[in-house]
């Protein structure tokens, strides 16, 4: 592996960008593939470039059938979970999601809610959701859940989330609450995108306790990440 390749992997890490390194196993020749194209000493056939593009999305690593004897190693960002509303369910969801490999940030400008006592060891933001989301960036490896029950917090987050690349958007609330929310989002011109919101949030496991609801939400996020939104 060339020093330049090592540097590019580190750069992709820092920027939360995906990258694939393809290696010809016979002699170690390599090329790098990212969203801007292919670079390096190894040439790839068109079929192999398509395979690599799919791996860049899924994050899987595999031998290439379109370029026999070559192995593609995908490096993709860790999944992230942004939780709007430092509520009781969030207290259960944040550590569960961290255990499942997610980088978690809890966003709530109300200091009494987003306190380190209530969220030991969790990354907290006391910004307004629109400020926090603009700073954190909404990429395709990130999920967002709006749990605050307060339209002043949930709505600005959803307005930024809906047109973004986020792989999962969920919002807590009863059917009636959600109907009202949809009316507001339609009025904001986001009507067509509101089908992206998972509500009622979470898989229907039947639980009612905050921790049980957190399991439902995390299970749905994992399902969408691996099986797609139509699962």
């Amino acid at each position: 592996m060339k020093a330049g390749t090592l540097a590019r992997i580190a750069e992709a890490q820092g920027k939360r960008q995906g990258l694939v390194v393809v290696t010809r196993l016979a002699d170690g020749a390599q090329c790098l593939v990212d969203s801007s194209g292919v670079s390096g000493e190894l040439q790839l056939a068109a079929a192999a470039r398509e395979e690599v593009a799919a791996l860049l999305l899924s994050g899987r690593s595999a031998a290439l059938s379109g370029e026999p004897g070559c192995f593609a190693r995908a490096y993709v960002p860790s999944p992230r979970l942004l939780i709007v509303g430092a509520v009781h369910i969030a207290q259960a969801l944040a550590p569960m999601a961290a255990t499942a490999g997610y980088e978690v940030t809890v966003i709530d400008p109300r200091g009494a809610f987003a306190s380190p006592e209530r969220f030991p060891g969790v990354q907290l933001s006391d910004e307004w959701p629109d400020e926090a989301l603009a700073r954190l960036g909404l990429d395709a490896a990130t999920a967002l859940v709006a749990l605050s029950h307060d339209p002043k917090l949930d709505d600005p987050a959803l307005e930024l989330a809906l047109p973004s690349e986020l792989f999962y958007i969920g919002a807590l609330g009863s059917r009636r609450t959600h109907e009202k929310r949809l009316e507001r989002l339609r009025a904001a011109g986001l009507g067509e995108l509101t089908v992206r919101i998972h509500s009622p949030i979470g898989l229907d496991l039947g639980g009612r306790a905050p921790a049980e609801i957190a399991v439902s939400i995390l299970a749905e996020i994992i399902q969408v990440r691996h099986r797609g939104a139509t699962a």
Binding site: A3, A10, Q13, P77, S78, G101
Partner: peptide
């Protein structure tokens, strides 16, 4: 990139540096 890859490549870069 996942946390395991992060720490492995950080270590690799430190060794080479």
């Amino acid at each position: 990139m996942n946390a395991d890859d992060d720490s492995l490549f950080d270590t690799l870069r430190r060794w080479r540096a």
